[in-house]
Structures are given as C-alpha cells and as structure tokens.
Design a binder for these strands. Sequence first.
RNA 1: GGAGAGGUGCCAGAGUGGUCGAAUGGGUCUCACUGCUAAUGAGUUGACCUGGGAAACCGGGUCCGAGGGUUCAAAUCCCUCCCUCUCCGCCA
Length: 438
Amino acid sequence: MLDIRIVREDLDKVKQALATRGVAPGLLDELWDLDQQARTASTKRDTLRAEVNSISKEIAQLMRSGDTVSAGALRDRSRAIGDELSALESRAGELDVERREALLRIPNLPSEDAPVGVSEADNLIVRWWSPKSGMQNGSEINLPDYADYQRKPHWEIGSELKILDLERAAKISGSMFPMFRGLGATLERALTSMALDAHSDAFEEIRPPTLVRSATMVSTGHLPKFEEDAYRLERDDLYAIPTAEVPLTSLAKDEILLEEDLPVRLSAFTACFRREAGSAGRDTRGLLRLHEFDKVEILSYATPDQAADMHAELLRRAESLLQRLGLTYRVLDLCTGDLGNSSKRTFDLEAYSPGTGLWLEVSSVSWFGDYQARRANIRFRNSKSNQIEFVHTLNGSALAWARIWAVIVETYRQSDGSVTIPEELRPYMRNLEKIPSP
RNA sequence: GGAGAGGUGCCAGAGUGGUCGAAUGGGUCUCACUGCUAAUGAGUUGACCUGGGAAACCGGGUCCGAGGGUUCAAAUCCCUCCCUCUCCGCCA
C-alpha cells in the first residue's frame, strides 16, 4: 500500500512512476479526489462528534448536581445533532473504506534503479554463471556444450528412471500436480535440507501454516487484486499459500519491532499452491508450471537503511545455491512493466534447462520497500529519531524445487541414462552417487 | 463437536453506563539520595487519523480482541464473529 500522503503531495510524480508499470493516471486522479472527499467528510464528522461529546459531559455534570430539567433539554438537543451525525458517520465511513480499497489495488512505486520497460522482453540480463565459465557480466551468454544425452526433457528422464510419475499424479489430483517417487522424492528432500542448512548461519528456520486467512493474503498484496490466482477453501474462508512469503510476512503483523533486532532473517520450507488461471497450455509440460510445488523461501524485515544490503545478501544466497548445485543460470533485473505488484525491484534467477532449451525461473528476489509493511502494519522504532517507522520487507526463493529438480536431472544425465547426483547433495542422499538407470 | 471461563496499556491486573486513555503493581526512562552497585523517594512512559506550527508543541477525533447495535453518553448493556484456557468426546 502506498502512503496516501505522497499521493496527496506529489500526485504527478506518483502518476509518472506508476505509468512505467502500466497504471492508468486516471486511477490516481480518482484516488486523489476520493482522499479529498474522505478528509472533508471526516473533519465534519469529527467537529460534530466533539459537540456531542461536550454536551454529554455537561449532561453528566447537571445530573450530578440534580438539575434534571436542564439535563433533559440538553439531551433533546444532542439527540437532534445525533441524527445529523449518524448520516455524516456513515458517509465518512464509506469514503474511508473506498479509499482504502482503491489504495489496496494500486501497485508499489518501482525503484528508480529498476529498468523501465513494458514486458518481460525488456528485462535486463545483468550476469550469468556456468560451472565452466564462472561468473560473467552482461547478456552475451555462451552456453556450455551439452551432449545429446543431456538434451532429453526431464519428464522423459523422470518416467524412464521411475522417479517422476505425472500420470498417476494426474489420476490423483489432475494435471500440473507432480508426484516424485523413489530417489526422485529423496532428491526433493535433499534439496530442502541442503538449502535450509545453507541459511542456518543467519536465518531462523520457520515451518509456518500453509492455509491462511484472507487478511494474511491482503498483507503481502496477493489479495484483493489476485483472487483468481489463489486456491480458496470456501467453507472455512482460508487460502492455500502461493508462497511462504505470505505467512512469513504476516508473522510480525501489527507489531512494533526493536531496532536492535533488525534485520530479522527468516527461512521456511513450504508447499506453494497456484491456480495458474489463464496460463493453460503455456509451457506447462512436465514440471515447468505446477499447481503445487515445494520451495524454500528466505525473508527479511529490515530498516530502510539496511534494505539495499539485504537485497544483495538474499540474491547472493540464492545464487550460491545454484552454484553449489553446478547449474547454469542467469540474473535478470526485472523491468518496471514486469515487476510484481508489491515489488520495488526484483531480480529473477533463471536456470538453464538443457532438456527443453528453456531458461526456467527458479528464484525471484524482491525488495518491497514499506509497501507490504504498511499493509501488514509492521513497524520499528528508529532509535535516532525516536520515531516509529515502517520496516522494509524483502524476500527471495532459495530455491523453487520442481524446476530445479528438472534442471538437475537433465544437466546431470549420463550417456548410460543414469543421473549423477551433484556432490553437494550426496550427504543428504545417503551418500549415493547416482540415480541408476533401470 | 459438546459444556464452561476469559480476552483491558510494554507485562501483570482492577474497573459493570458519565468524574476512565483507563486504578494499582512491575518494567522503562529522568531526577534526587548514595564512594560504586543495590535499595529508596519523586516524576515519566501508548498508537492511529486530522487541523495549526519551521519546530518544540497545541487543538479535535478514534482505539479497552474484531465488527455491528442500544443510549444524550459504552471498557462497562445487547448481537455476531475471532482467539485463548479448562473439562468431555473424537483423532494423526
């Protein structure tokens, strides 16, 4: 949620900034009007309330001194005002709600550092990494040479090695729900343990609930605008989380944190649920796009001063996992038009899938400024100014497993059809060296 | 799922219609006392919206789990919901 004050004070600047992500300026004009109306209405309401309050005090005094006649007269007067007041109250109340609802649907202001653009085609490739070349800046990517046997899509490898069973998953739950079997399932579990351990030096490991209230979805910006994307359990009014970001952000909802406790670092492993409405048929084969997938998320509450460093830290941590797994990836600086609703700036990590020839998004590392904190009401007291301020929230996937699983089995496929297990994972997989071909 | 109890400030806890943003105790911070620490004494200590002001600050409004209602007036009365605790039932 934006600070209504900057809309009030600098309407043109807000319009301009949001235009870069495709928000119609008229929407801001409407909000500005609504704010003016809401403020005049509540001022009127408050002066009338003040009058009723003071009359009530007078009545109390008169009652105590036994002057019931004067008290009765005042009571009649107050009652008359009361009718007028209740009309004003409901008007002001409506306007408040309308203003908040409008505000909840307006996306965050992009960072000035985010590249300006309209679609994912305008995202900036800032660097890439492969085990052979190491880190390289720029967008000129020389992919490693992949052998023919690595050019097999993971869904074929998966059924060949009996470690992925999409057919039966579909029988159980429908398409786009995965089922891993045998060492395939072990691989997911190993990835999870490895990742959580990798962040355990600084992050508190959380295992949050997977079903949340609607208010929790509002805090992160997943509601009200993206209702269609989420699974909802109507009977209990709960939503299945699309990412651990949702419960982790609301962990500190309505709290005032101590500055010395910042930055807070949290990690969590959860399943993530996405309806993927409207994306049917688009890169949906195998594990490319799923209704349910597992993910380790890292998240931070930071002071505004700490936010830039924290953003870099989260990105570094996500990247380091990809490097440890020996997977070729590139780093994208998302352009304003492709930025998520709540984000000010996002770096996506895309791993290269030799079996499909696609770059797969396996992590998204975002800085939200105070946008989510304002929605969730998460604050801290600035010890220098002694003022209460909103924290900044940041988070990143580290990492999203199903796609990583896909890239691993393709990248590490051997000529005999078996898959070598990346060394870093072996301690988590009973020290096995490969997933054998039957 | 059934029966009961309860949700008040940083914490504990009083308050059952007006003098209550809220007793009291603890904590916090400040000052005094003290060689230091401790102890003691005095004071201090909320958030949000809004108007004025450069600011310190001042005015108005809201907030006693959430939302509605009754009343001139609600922490206090009524309704709905949420949460916590105890007991019973069921269950990984």
